[in-house]
C-alpha cells in the first residue's frame, strides 16, 4: 500500500492497484464457466437435446413448408379480416383500461406522491410479481377460467400493461424535480391536492408516451394470444398451423408485419412530439 500526503498535511492510504494477472485469470474462468453451462444446456436428456440428425432427416419435409411461406395465399385474406380487427380491438381496449388503472397506481407507487412506505412497498411487490409472468401464460390460465374469446386476452394484456406503465411512470415521478411538489405542500395542499394539481400535469406527457409504447407492445402480443384460445389472429394461426397451411400462415405473418410497422411508426411520430 502506498501513501499520499495531501496539501493540508493528511496522509491517505491508496488501495493497491487491481493486478492485471488476476483479472485475466478471472476472465478465463468466466469464459470457461459460460462454455460449461452452454455444453450442459445443449446436452441430451439434461438440456435441450440438440439432436442434429433428426433435423437432417426432417430437412426435406420442412424445407418445402418454408418455401410455401414465400407464396402467400392471397385468397385467404377475407377470412383474416375479422380476426385482425379483433386483434386490434383487444390491443386498444387493453391499452385504454390499462392506462386508466395505471395513472393512480403510478402515483401510489412513487415516493414523492405517496410518502407512506408500507402501502408503496406492498404495491411494488405485487407489481413485481405480476410482471414476472409473461402475458401469454396469463392468457393460457385465464382461458381456462373465463372461457375462450377476447375477454381473457384483454385481461392478460391489462395485467401486463399495468405492470409496465406503473413501473416506468413511477420511476419518472421519482426522477422529476421535487420543487413544485414541495411548493404545493408548503402552500398547504393535502397530498391528494398536491398530486392532482402538480404531479399529474407534470407526469402526463411521459405517461402518454409510455401508454403509446404499451400499445405497440399490445399489438404484437395480441396477435399471438389466440394461440392459447384468447381471440384475435392467434386463433387463426393455430388453425392453419395444425393443417400445415404455411402459405396461409405467410399471409397472416405479412398482415402482422404491416400492422406492427404502421402502429409503430404512427406511435413513434406522436411520441416524438410529446417528449
Amino acid at each position: 500500500m502506498s501513501q499520499v500526503v495531501t496539501a493540508d498535511g493528511r496522509v491517505l492510504t491508496v488501495p493497491p492497484r487491481p493486478r492485471g494477472r488476476h483479472r485475466t485469470v478471472l476472465a478465463w474462468v468466466a469464459v470457461l464457466a459460460v462454455l460449461a453451462v452452454t455444453a450442459l444446456t445443449m446436452a441430451p436428456r439434461v438440456g435441450i437435446d440438440a439432436d442434429l440428425s433428426a433435423v437432417a432427416g426432417h430437412w426435406r419435409n420442412g424445407a418445402s413448408k418454408i418455401v410455401a411461406l414465400l407464396a402467400p395465399d392471397w385468397a385467404f385474406f377475407p377470412r383474416t379480416v375479422e380476426p385482425l380487427v379483433q386483434t386490434l380491438q383487444m390491443a386498444v381496449i387493453a391499452t385504454a383500461i390499462g392506462a386508466v388503472v395505471s395513472l393512480p397506481l403510478s402515483l401510489w407507487a412513487a415516493r414523492p406522491t405517496n410518502p407512506d412506505r408500507w402501502s408503496r412497498g406492498a404495491l411494488r411487490v405485487l407489481l413485481n410479481i405480476v410482471r414476472a409472468v409473461p402475458e401469454l401464460l396469463y392468457a393460457a390460465v385465464l382461458v381456462a377460467m373465463v372461457g375462450v374469446g377476447a375477454l381473457p386476452g384483454i385481461i392478460a394484456l391489462v395485467l401486463f400493461d399495468v405492470g409496465i406503465i406503473v413501473k416506468l411512470v413511477s420511476e419518472q415521478i421519482e426522477a422529476a424535480d421535487t420543487g413544485p411538489l414541495e411548493a404545493a405542500t408548503a402552500a398547504g395542499g393535502t397530498q391528494l391536492q398536491v398530486n392532482r394539481s402538480v404531479a399529474v400535469p407534470d407526469v402526463l406527457p411521459g405517461f402518454l408516451n409510455q401508454t403509446l409504447y404499451v400499445l405497440e407492445l399490445n399489438v404484437r402480443a395480441s396477435a399471438v394470444l389466440g394461440l392459447v384460445g384468447a381471440g384475435g389472429l392467434g386463433l387463426l394461426i393455430d388453425a392453419v398451423r395444425s393443417f400445415y397451411r404455411y402459405d396461409q400462415l405467410s399471409l397472416i405473418i405479412l398482415e402482422i408485419l404491416v400492422v406492427v410497422v404502421v402502429i409503430d411508426s404512427a406511435s413513434a411520430a406522436i411520441r416524438r412530439r410529446l417528449v
Partner: peptide
C-alpha cells in the same frame, strides 16, 4: 417484428 412464437412455428416443421 415477428413474435418468437411464430418463428418457432415456422422452424418446427424442420426441427
Amino acid at each position: 417484428a415477428v413474435p418468437e412464437i411464430i418463428t418457432a412455428i415456422i422452424i418446427l416443421s424442420v426441427t
